[in-house]
Design a protein around this nucleic acid. Structure first.
Lengths: 217, 217
DNA sequence: GCCGGCATTTTGTGATCACAATCAGGGCAT
DNA sequence: ATGCCCTGATTGTGATCACAAAATGCCGGC
């Protein structure tokens, strides 16, 4: 076969970028179980590209802790120890209250309304027993709030934590999927409306550490 | 030329790994100024490898925020806005007290002695007006302490912050290089010896935010 | 029935190439 | 003198290949 390429548009979205985004999304929202193994050729085949872009996307995700390499270079989603999960939960508990606090002064009515909407689809996902949808809506709730903090570096760091927890979260939530709906989320919204910063920090922290408690298994 | 390769030892240290480590070290310790541009072919030439390992190392560093890609894919060290620096300093102020606090119960006499030794070479670097040596010793002081926290994910996150600040730190420290020696470091050591957790957190936070204050320029 | 060793296959690594987009520089017109 | 365009060089991207190491499957021996 010749080296012909159909196109080489550089700026819009490089091939490895799309692969990266798709894979990242799958991992963050728990579509892949912990310990799932991936191959460069397999990913390339699935996305219709060669190994090169697959390698770059994987390398990037490994750097973010979303994938791990075995000693021999095999690629798989991480299987987190409970110490590791505790650590990541602690990171969330440190970072997210700060982000919410920074977002508070900029949280207008339109934002709160949007958060309520997200909360609705979250409830629907709970009713559907759809753990991927649950994770997606839950993280979108947090991300939407934190985007207002105007702190991109901090947000990126939190997203990295979410990403690392992704595969393990699915298991966590698929088990403890009671009707609980977004109790803490309503507390967050109330604190936002009241402009109550300490209450907001507490509510966010409680929401974040709630997930942690169901890992004593 | 044929495709001959002299060796392909996989396990010890892959080529891109060494390139990554060296580059990362250069960036973290401020050996590269902000805005310095790099090329894949240039790096490959310097390290005697092809573009492929250079690409992987660069991709990894970009994922960690140690390098940035321009819209057209050009590689350079980041030029941080002061808002960005403030954010990163805030991250340090959030994470490092937590790490020090976790290290405290495990901080034996041998560790404190080692920290004192590092402090010595830090003072020497100050006298030598050696800002790279200063940065290196300073971060080694912190890293040595935090390693005792047994919190690899948290430590990795802090190191990522250090890495992002690297090129900008050089400028910061080369300007405000008074004889100040490690004042806060001595406070940290005192708190460690006394087993004083609140004091330790405060001392660490003060040491971390000190650098921040000299960026009002 | 189970386990150890051998051959085949799979898989990551690194080199090399074609290509398009961008960048840098000089020369020309105004 | 200054602004603009055009050309050549530089640079990242993706494809393809050779290779070695690890994984897998198979078979025979006990």
């Amino acid at each position: 076969m010749t080296n012909r390429k159909p196109s080489q548009s550089r700026s819009p979205e490089a091939a490895h970028e799309q692969l990266y985004r798709t894979l990242r999304s799958r991992i963050m929202y728990g579509e892949l179980p912990p310990g799932e193994s991936l191959t460069l050729r397999g990913l390339g085949r699935e996305f219709g590209v060669s190994m090169t872009p697959a390698r770059e996307a994987v390398r990037r995700l490994v750097a973010e802790g979303a994938l791990t390499l075995s000693a021999s270079g095999r690629i798989s989603t991480p299987e987190l120890s409970s110490e590791r999960i505790e650590e990541l939960a602690c990171l969330r508990a440190l970072l997210e209250p700060e982000l919410s606090s920074r977002a508070l002064p900029r949280a207008h009515a339109a934002l709160i309304e949007r958060l309520q909407l997200i909360n609705q689809s979250l409830s629907e996902a709970v009713n559907r027993q759809d753990s991927v949808g649950y994770l997606r809506s839950n993280l979108e709730f947090h991300r939407t709030l934190y985007l207002r903090a105007q702190a991109p570096a901090m947000l990126a760091m939190v997203e990295t934590v979410w990403l690392q927890m992704g595969p393990s979260m699915r298991l966590l939530y698929s088990r403890l999927q009671r009707r609980e709906a977004p109790r803490h989320h309503r507390m967050i919204l109330a604190a936002l409306r009241a402009g109550d910063e300490p209450g907001l920090r507490l509510a966010v922290r409680a929401d974040v550490t709630r997930g942690l408690r169901m890992l004593a298994s």
